[in-house]
């Protein structure tokens, strides 16, 4: 009986470790799939929020070690591939915003939800400016500025909800990590 529980706990712990490492990346990729999904409400296309950006911001502020630059680069590159856009555009934009935000993380993280949302507003603005610059660099001045603004606004407005969801995910994976550490006789 006790052997069975130990084995089960071992499996759970292994899964927990995987989740701990992979959850931020998987959450970003899932956000990316929702971003490109053909969702129409009331016969209209909604300017889809940049869900991957929300995940990048959340983990860059909460646990930067789980959202290293190469993951940000990979998410941006996959977004470019899936949308069929110029390669490097979103990876460049995300990385630029990520770099500035991680250096300023003390100003936003741990200072309440409002401050964190303001920080995300700054992240969205930086990303959009970088994307517009990269877009102009590649395609001349032929970008849909109105769409860019609408997308930025929808991303900013949806963040509190997405942030809460990511927070729950983070808590769950942290518990899984604790289980793993206890199982292997380690401390956090």
């Amino acid at each position: 009986m006790s052997q069975g529980i130990t084995r089960l706990s071992s499996v759970a712990a292994q899964v927990g470790l995987f989740a701990w490492i992979g959850v931020p990346t998987l959450a970003s990729l899932l956000g990316l799939l929702i971003y490109v999904a053909p969702i129409h409400m009331f016969g209209m296309s909604i300017p889809m929020p940049l869900f991957p950006l929300m995940a990048i911001f959340f983990w860059a502020m909460a646990r930067p070690q789980l959202m290293p630059p190469f993951v940000v680069f990979a998410i941006g590159l996959i977004q470019d591939l899936i949308t069929g856009g110029p390669l490097g555009l979103w990876s460049f934009s995300y990385l630029c915003a990520y770099t500035i935000m991680t250096t300023q993380s003390d100003a936003f993280s741990g200072r309440g939800a409002g401050m964190l949302w303001a920080g995300f507003g700054l992240m969205v603005s930086l990303t959009m400016v970088a994307a517009a610059l990269a877009g102009v660099m590649v395609m001349g001045a032929k970008i849909d500025g109105y769409h860019l603004l609408a997308q930025g606004a929808s991303t900013f407005l949806v963040y509190p909800l997405a942030g809460r969801l990511y927070g729950r995910l983070q808590q769950t994976t942290q518990q899984a990590r604790r289980m793993y550490d206890i199982h292997h006789g380690m401390t956090l």
């Binding site: 190469f70 590159l77 490097g88 990269a134």
Partner: peptide
Amino acid sequence: SIVLFIGISVALLLSQG
């Protein structure tokens, strides 16, 4: 790595003209 990956992104962008 930040500098490296930003550099790769810019190189990708420029290579597409």
